[in-house]
Amino acid sequence: MATHSDTHHEEFHYHAPGLQHQFEDMKQQEESVSIGMWAFLVQEIMFFGGLFTAYLVFRSRFPLAFAEASNHLNAFWGGLNTLVLIVSSLTMALAVFYAQKGNRNMQVIMIVLTMIFGTAFLGVKAIEYTDKYNTGLIPVTGWNKKVKESDVQHAGEPAKGSEGAFVLPLIETKAEASAAADDHEKPYINPNGEFQWNSGRHVFDYAIEKEKSGKAYLTAAERVGYFSNGEFDPNKYRDKIRIFYFIYFVMTGLHALHMVVGLGLMSWLLWAAFRGSFSGEYFAPVEMSGLYWHFVDIVWIFLFPLLYLLGRHFLAGGAH
């Protein structure tokens, strides 16, 4: 019976390209696809929401260690990546714009540009990850660069073994420069590839300074979490910094994974657009991929300040 009615359908009605059998017309299909995509984005928001909740909980429990750790991320690269993503969002929006206009060439160009900027984002991310690898900031034991004591020639000079590796200049502020020079900074020796924290406790010191003026700066969790027997315990402090880096890697990692999926989507879109599959009447796939791409952009718009920027003023303000 289905085949019977189907053939009649084909014969007597104009069958728009891309219209699927369960829909009456293009409008119904577009509405369905669009609502479906938004429902998918809602679930994506909740998916990342679990991570943001974890971030919120630990940031509010250990704000100092988080600021300490966050200050060590390279905000310049983070900011650059934000700009890269914003450009890619613009080109994506324009790809939809041109698809709507039925302009195939501009559409293809915009999709290619989007892919280039998306790849650039992942490239910068890779540079950042490499830097974390080189400096012992990957929270997983054994996943960092392994440097034996004998590999290091002199303290204070660049290690020989790292010639080939790309190390970012991490010093951005005066305070960090002075911190790098003072005795908190140790040469990178890491025979087992463990998580290390060699960059001192400047934010903590800043807070202790403030506490002296009568303000309660440390949270209840911090009063327990940073001290052993009433003494500051650098290992416990490092553990909290490690939690930050764990969250950092999970959040940016999942975000990067979404970028990879997005790029896959773009490749398919490029192929389809190149063949001229889309027209002013039928461009829903471009539009839906665009929604996904912008969503991934929005996630980063929040990740950037939360992971890279919050707590930066602790260093900028204080000359101590």
Partner: peptide, 29 residues
């Protein structure tokens, strides 16, 4: 609205179990 949250939670649990570090481990805070 709910299922993605269990997805990410189980994922965090799996990551923590694999790599031996994570946000649910009271030993490191």
């Amino acid at each position: 609205l709910g299922t993605p949250v269990i997805a990410i939670t189980v994922l965090l649990l799996a990551i923590e179990r694999t790599v031996g570090v994570g946000i649910f481990d009271p030993a490191i805070g």
